[in-house]
Design a protein around this nucleic acid. Structure first.
Lengths: 345, 345
DNA sequence: AGGCGGTGCTCAATCGTTTTAGCATAGCCC
DNA sequence: GGGCTATGCTAAAACGATTGAGCACCGCCT
């Protein structure tokens, strides 16, 4: 009997590895790696040869192994409060586009109002599932801040960040945003404004309330505030509360567009004319503002743009192109007038 | 001078590893792994000890290394045509929830109408970034099918799959769905229907056209079809084409909700009353159907449910709980009557 | 001829975890 | 006391790529 061949075909169930390519090409594994990555000095001839064998075998370098060795995963995480909200879809889309362009994949986490889900998400960084993270956390949490301080991996927060916590972030002057809405309504001759806010345990709601209070004070208006969830249903239900508590209201300043659109729906059902009887404004300028009826005047907070910038800051850090100091970007809001306040419909 | 300690503290910049824990606990790395994972025979005492040291060091097992060794990443990919479309957001949300529940992370890819982006996404499986994939591809592509056939990793397709390609999939009878809409309009006394379809090079458009043609034939209707993009803008523009080619139309059967809502907007601008002058129906039953005006009658294709089932099929396969034969699930559509066809508004 | 530098490739260590095989030690029974 | 089985731990080999060090070899110069 002949000797066993030293390297039997060894039909693997899985994919070809660099070792398989090396064997067939008659070179070492190192050469395969160097040839395909183009990182070392390898002759043109060998490169072509290895490449052709690799192609023939359908060889693709294993990302796990590569990641382990190079300590880089080429993945980032995006943590949003609720992917069902079009605002965060805009952010996700922008980030995904930016990441793809630079060779990164995006892991999406929607915390869906679950207590502590944002803190849990930081595990992705700890255990090395991802290289960095864009985090949108709307509920202030001491625990989250503490953990943020401990982690020494690139993170970019979209939203307010307590000073001293040296982390990159991009924020928007939403306080000023509410001011824009209020001023617009005053110009339109409204004077009995009600602010329909989101849950007060969230950052956006606090900042926006502050904006309303400042603007109301400046204008000498009575302070009228109602609170509900940041959802269509919230806005829908809030209308009834407004009518009970402030029957003479002639304008609703809603803390986001979902509330505004929900309110529009309820007002229509009640036969209240918008904008004739009551004007309505929203915040965020989601695409839905253009399809509801009447179209919703809103304050654009440029979510897509913020997502894009956050992604860029994060990716720059990952490629070491960023300065050591934590970066901060502030975006300015802008008013978009539509039918619900008497603009062109 | 005393000897150097055999194991200097060795301040790592990164995270603690199992070796660090082992050193401090005075046991071997194997024991650390076995103690923390609870897979081997380790005494209670040792387990407690190792656990406390690990906690103290903030040790978290590295996912890369673990994945490499165990050949499992605990990640799946979700590939959708456009995350900007609320239908796919519903799918994403359902899948993310299901995945999280079973300890998996979701990598999101939006192909955004880029040629070949779906085929590219399969690389995620090849290179081991993820264990499995849920794929929604709406543009039929020989290349995609060929690649799908080659890959021997769990995939679940949402949508039509050519027979013989033995891959798990969940589909919806959208042909029948269009039939439901047509029948509803006929019952409402409409007779001059126009089908506003999406791009004919997509699967959904073909299937829905077929549904319209069958229903029209059954009812003895003239075949009237217009085509546009599956977007708000598409529907908006399509109205003008309809009015030019079929001025007497009394109903628009739209191939998805975005088209329908876009059409509503244009009709309103033109002073055409809905549903009095023209009735409109959509398909998908996205949440926006309830906020536009009038509310849009639609055919629910249960996107969230399909996503949930796809995720379950995929995750079952990954945990080896699935039978060898490829699975197929079919979801039935259901009509949701609203204001745009004269239902309660 | 000897030395030197460059080229092209390989060796072997490394990343951090999991897991199999195996080695002590202790306890038990007769 | 001798054999036998559990028990509790460790050594070492994976997983698959990357990479710094190093080894042949060739050509060139003096």
């Amino acid at each position: 009997m002949a000797n066993e061949p030293p390297n039997p075909p060894q039909r693997r169930t899985g994919t070809a590895t660099a070792a398989d390519v090396a064997r067939l090409a008659g070179v070492s594994v190192s050469t395969v790696s160097l040839a395909l990555s183009g990182r070392g000095r390898v002759s043109e001839k060998t490169i072509r040869h290895v490449r052709s064998i690799a192609e023939q075998l359908g060889y693709v370098p294993n990302a796990q192994a590569s990641s382990l060795r190079r300590q880089v995963t080429h993945r980032i995480a995006l943590v949003v409060p609720d992917i069902g909200n079009p605002v965060y879809v805009a952010v996700a889309k922008a980030i995904q586009r930016e990441a793809k362009q630079r060779g990164y994949y995006v892991l999406l986490i929607s915390t869906d109002n679950v207590e502590g889900a944002d803190v849990d998400a930081l595990h992705l960084l700890r255990n090395g599932h991802v290289d960095g993270m864009v985090l949108i956390a709307i509920r202030p949490s001491g625990e989250l801040e503490r953990q943020l301080g401990r982690i020494h991996k690139p993170i970019c927060v979209i939203g307010k960040v307590p000073g001293g916590l040296g982390v990159d972030h991009v924020e928007v002057n939403s306080t000023r945003g509410v001011g824009l809405a209020v001023e617009h309504l005053l110009e339109q001759g409204r004077s009995r404004l009600v602010f329909v806010n989101g849950p007060l345990d969230t950052n956006p709601a606090r900042l926006r309330l502050q904006g309303y209070l400042e603007a109301a004070r400046r204008a000498g208006l009575e302070e009228r505030v109602v609170s509900c969830a940041f959802t269509l249903q919230g806005g829908y239900a809030a209308v009834d509360e407004v009518r009970a508590r402030f029957p003479d209201a002639d304008a609703l300043v809603c803390a986001n567009d979902l509330i505004g659109i929900g309110a529009l729906k309820r007002l229509r059902e009640l036969g209240v004319r918008v904008p004739e009887d009551v004007a309505v404004t929203g915040i965020d300028d989601i695409p839905e503002c253009q399809i509801c009826s009447p179209t919703l005047t809103s304050v654009a907070l440029h979510a897509g743009e913020r997502g894009r910038m956050a992604a860029q800051m994060l990716l720059n850090r990952l490629s070491g192109e960023a300065p050591a100091a934590p970066l901060r970007v502030v975006v300015e809001p802008s008013l978009v007038v539509r039918g619900s306040t008497g603009g062109r419909p």
